[in-house]
Design a binder for these strands. Sequence first.
DNA 1: GTGAAAGCGCTAACAG
DNA 2: CTGTTAGCGCTTTCAC
Lengths: 349, 349
Amino acid sequence: MDVTMKDVAKLAGVSLSTVSRVLNDSSLVREETARKVEKAVEKLDYQINDSARILRTNTSNLIGVIGAGMERPFLANLLKGIEAEARERGFALIYGDSDGEFEKEQNYLNIMKQKKIDGIILITTNYYNDLLSIVKNYNIPVVFASGYISDPEISCVTVDNVAAAYDMVEFLCQSGHKNMAFIKGPDLDMLASQERLRGVKLALRLSDIEYDSKRFIEGDFTFESGYSAAKKIINKFPDVTAIFAFNDEMAVGTIRFLKEQGIKVPEDISVVGFDGIDLGNYTDPALTTIKQSGYHLGLKSIEMLNQIINEGKIEDNKVFIPHKLVVRESTNKLNELTTKQEVITKNRG
Amino acid sequence: MDVTMKDVAKLAGVSLSTVSRVLNDSSLVREETARKVEKAVEKLDYQINDSARILRTNTSNLIGVIGAGMERPFLANLLKGIEAEARERGFALIYGDSDGEFEKEQNYLNIMKQKKIDGIILITTNYYNDLLSIVKNYNIPVVFASGYISDPEISCVTVDNVAAAYDMVEFLCQSGHKNMAFIKGPDLDMLASQERLRGVKLALRLSDIEYDSKRFIEGDFTFESGYSAAKKIINKFPDVTAIFAFNDEMAVGTIRFLKEQGIKVPEDISVVGFDGIDLGNYTDPALTTIKQSGYHLGLKSIEMLNQIINEGKIEDNKVFIPHKLVVRESTNKLNELTTKQEVITKNRG
DNA sequence: GTGAAAGCGCTAACAG
DNA sequence: CTGTTAGCGCTTTCAC
């Protein structure tokens, strides 16, 4: 078997409790004794048995992460931020992917409870409401990192999707676009995609543009879905001058489709995304988008969770991370003389 | 406190051991008794205390994953595959990112040992040799999922980087390219990048093309590094007709740079990548690359680890996952009449 | 300052 | 088939 505390105690010539005290930085140990113990620990390459410690103390220094679609660049960076900050604060991570299925989420929640995790980060959008009630029932510290949760008891950190989507549409309108189409996330996504939708509607209303639900095509945040959504858009609305995809990957898929059709971006159609992943700097044209930092989001989520774990509460439990409209090459100011609408009018006139 | 087995036993009117037997599918329990216990478990929403179980049994159903650069699409998919297969087989995952630093790797290894993980997947390339000796000393099942490990005791699963890189260069040569440049991975990367380098050299030799180390620029697998490596290449070797980046992101960065310079891909220069991430289908031009499946690699790594854990050994401990050359739009057959070399010659002549 | 002893919740002989 | 019992390795009173 592995080296145990008993072995250390024996080698150091002290009792079990003294070893434990030294390992836990207890100040009630003579420095000389401590040194003896430390020497023995080193010599035996002793590693504490975490299960025994957890069993006794009921605290695990373990944080559970339940995510979905984490292979998407934005979320992969979120995970990276979570990991880095968790490590920094002495937590290890149990990581589970739910594939957006409630059953798997529930399952992982149970597993994590069994492991006595100190807290949990939830990055899941579909059945979050059901999840929430389980989590509340389990009475475990939780931070939601994938959208705004209105329940006042629940902490969350997210970009302000409504405001950001609003900003983007406002920018498009100010650039002269009236004839827009949109690529949403999955309709099952009750958080980010819904919020962005709200932001779009708001901006449309304030710009006196009529809301037309047919102009919102459902995607699933992949390149492929952006590609096929663009196809639908071009078929149904050939006169569109701007397409707003709710994430960068779908925008890239859109651009690819348009180019295949010989449609120039941005000369013929402007295309914008959301998230601001690295890729957007290297596409042709480079992508106009809303930039937010997944890494920072991850950091912040652990920071909040840590506070809840340590202090039992958190003063500000709804936080927004910054976002910024980044205008690159995929958007055009619509010169009034060359607006398609105008051209048509002129041709008719 | 939480519900314990004692509570279940009391409610069901049986002893602790009976409850334990039922929970562990022990067949020596009358069906009726089992049902009583199950009912009590359900009623109390009992969750086993994993720490107690681990302490007692010394097996955790926990797999440790130590990775680096996991935000890269290929590796994000690898992680997804690991997670899916681990879940399938009843393992939970402890996940740690090493940032490619030995100290962090070592640290995580200790943490994981303390948690009595059943096995470990290593996806790290820089100091893998030092890691290996620790792991061997810890005597814990391990599978390496980021390159070929020659140590006969160590299991590994990876794409055949040598063969794949060879295939790519051979393809380029057969397309008439003689004047090539390459964008390597970091020189610290002792696995994938080194292996691909070997494959390239081999193909060069067999095609009677002289190896020139100056034509191998170091990158770090990011878009950005591909972009700047391409800049160096164009400055130093303006007559290059093909660039082979050792992953797709760097290839995309390369294409972006070339386009900015007004260099046409593939008409002026062919660009190829490695990995076959989704993105490559949606760039303009779509990317010629070596396709391998990160997800499948993840699956396989858990499958192997599981076998080592269960059977104490594995017959075939070096496995290669399939790869395929996928020719898309970023490469051109160099027509002999329009080879730059030929043109120059003709102009001179 | 340090040691002895109890017990966290579970499993696995062993007895019946 | 089921119950009793003895720990797994640690922390934490409680003595000294």
